[in-house]
Design a protein around this nucleic acid. Structure first.
Length: 225
DNA sequence: GCGACAG
DNA sequence: ATCTTGTCGC
């Protein structure tokens, strides 16, 4: 798929300014495309000295069978700074997306969307740059507070910041630690949670990120020798 | 000022 | 993220 090429910030201050510039472009409404055909999962694996490999897998939304995939290897574009995570992984992810032969209906990121200190996590950033529906599903919270959700799959508890909900701690398996779902772009939170549950028929983490995780690890290992 | 802090 | 053994449970 076609991806934009952009100049990259050199400092944390520039990166935050870029987030502030793009944040107003986020759209927090929208339901899942009808019909929903494909869903993409994205992830990055790290090696020595900032070497990294990014992977995108595209799954059939109904069967969760893989229909397309792409990887890219390179060097981290930014140090890891909580809240500026996107600047580290985005260039590699965009390179992988550019190698895709299909255009997925929704992008699922391994990280947060609106559940971010400045309301502009990786899923928002990617969604806005590509102007595609996107959501974030993270393994741990970054900002905000929440009560523990009920213990059953499907139970959720709002992620709150100043009494405002900007995400959901969602239980994807009975009696298993919740994941943190938030809107990236062009979808509402209900759609994001519905999709998260569709992607977790068996494990805590969505099939999209599980597949992408394996693929980027393999790509990193293959790039080593 | 002191912790907390996606991956 | 990544470095890592054993161990509990289906």
């Amino acid at each position: 798929m076609r991806v934009p090429e952009l100049d990259w910030p050199a400092t944390a201050a520039q990166a935050r300014a870029e987030q502030d510039r793009l944040r107003p472009l986020v759209r927090t409404t929208g339901s899942l495309p009808e019909p929903l055909r494909t869903v993409a999962g994205l992830d990055v694996a790290y090696g020595d000295d900032d070497r990294l490999a990014a992977a995108v897998v595209v799954l059939d939304a109904n069967t969760l069978a893989p229909v397309d995939r792409a990887t890219s290897v390179g060097v981290a574009a930014f140090p890891y700074v909580p809240g500026l995570f996107a600047f580290r992984e985005l260039p590699a992810l965009l390179a992988a997306l550019a190698a895709l032969t299909t255009v997925p209906d929704v992008l699922v990121c391994d990280g947060h969307g609106l559940a971010h200190p400045r309301r502009f996590g990786l899923a928002c950033h990617l969604g806005v740059l590509l102007d595609r529906p996107a959501i974030g599903i993270a393994k741990t919270p970054l900002s905000g507070r929440h009560d523990p959700p009920g213990r059953q799959r499907g139970d959720g508890s709002p992620l709150l910041d100043d009494g405002e909900q900007f995400g959901c701690a969602l239980r994807t398996r009975d009696d298993v630690k919740p994941v943190y779902v938030s809107v990236g772009h062009r979808l509402d939170l209900a759609a994001a949670c519905t999709l998260a549950l569709r992607l977790t028929p068996r494990y805590r983490l969505p099939e999209t990120t599980r597949r992408a995780d394996r693929l980027c690890r393999d790509a990193l290992a293959a790039a080593s020798d």
